Amino acid sequence: MRRLSDAWTEHARSDRIFSWFKDKDERTKCALAWSWLEKNKPRLTWRAEPFTKLTELLEFFDHSGASDEEKELYVDKIKRRWSTQKTREKAVEKKQYNFVLPQSVNAVLDKLAEEHQISRTKVLEHLILSEEQHELYLPKQPSRSAL
């Protein structure tokens, strides 16, 4: 009886990594988890029924053969995907840009962000909008009609 109790306690402990799914977004999170697993771990989802709620997700993982470490890794990756998705939903009026800056400029950007306790993105946003408004640092180019 003691072994059964210990086994159940261990099983319940290993299910704690899935507690993140239990909230008002449970169905959406489970759907995201299923699609992530289907794309990234197709062997796990092959011939399995898609899950739509936490109890089904727990049952799926109970029968998956995945180790506790693998389950934790999958949940971490799914959480990151969720976070990325939420960030993109909030950033409707924004677009990501990637560009290369010299290390010296990068260091100055970091210093400004730290001094003003704002993100690097906010520093760039403030500087660009300020320059647009005040025209202090970038020289005006002659108009093409003047050439």
Score class of each variant (00 low, 15 high):
residue 8 W to N: 12
residue 26 E to N: 12
residue 133 Q to I: 09
residue 115 E to Y: 08
residue 52 T to D: 06
residue 40 N to W: 03
residue 63 H to K: 09
residue 98 N to W: 08
residue 21 F to C: 01
residue 30 C to H: 14
residue 16 R to L: 13
residue 19 S to N: 04
residue 86 K to G: 07
residue 48 A to W: 00
residue 50 P to E: 01
residue 71 K to E: 10
residue 141 Q to F: 01
residue 14 S to Q: 10
residue 25 D to I: 06
residue 66 A to P: 06
residue 42 P to T: 01
residue 100 V to Q: 07
residue 96 Q to L: 15
residue 41 K to G: 02
residue 119 S to C: 07
residue 56 E to Y: 09
residue 11 H to S: 14
residue 125 E to G: 01
residue 21 F to V: 04
residue 89 E to T: 06
residue 122 K to P: 04
residue 24 K to L: 05
residue 67 S to L: 10
residue 62 D to H: 12
residue 147 L to T: 09
residue 109 L to T: 06
residue 71 K to S: 14
residue 120 R to D: 01
residue 118 I to H: 04
residue 34 W to P: 07
residue 120 R to M: 05
residue 135 E to V: 12
residue 45 T to Y: 12
residue 102 P to W: 06
residue 70 E to A: 09
residue 20 W to M: 02
residue 3 R to P: 10
residue 144 R to E: 05
residue 88 R to T: 05
residue 4 L to F: 06
residue 120 R to W: 00
residue 3 R to Y: 11
residue 4 L to C: 09
residue 63 H to G: 14
residue 39 K to S: 00
residue 15 D to P: 13
residue 4 L to P: 07
residue 27 R to A: 12
residue 124 L to W: 04
residue 26 E to Q: 11
residue 134 H to D: 04
residue 135 E to M: 15
residue 57 L to S: 00
residue 121 T to W: 02
residue 28 T to K: 13
residue 36 W to A: 03
residue 43 R to W: 12
residue 71 K to G: 12
residue 72 E to T: 11
residue 136 L to T: 00
residue 82 W to I: 05
residue 84 T to Q: 05
residue 10 E to S: 14
residue 39 K to I: 01
residue 16 R to D: 11
residue 51 F to N: 13
residue 15 D to M: 12
residue 12 A to K: 06
residue 44 L to I: 11
residue 30 C to F: 14
residue 118 I to V: 02
residue 98 N to I: 11
residue 76 D to R: 12
residue 75 V to Y: 07
residue 40 N to G: 02
residue 108 V to M: 14
residue 83 S to C: 11
residue 113 A to G: 15
residue 35 S to L: 00
residue 113 A to Q: 10
residue 115 E to L: 15
residue 127 L to R: 08
residue 40 N to C: 01
residue 44 L to F: 12
residue 95 K to P: 03
residue 134 H to V: 03
residue 108 V to E: 14
residue 144 R to C: 04
residue 127 L to P: 15
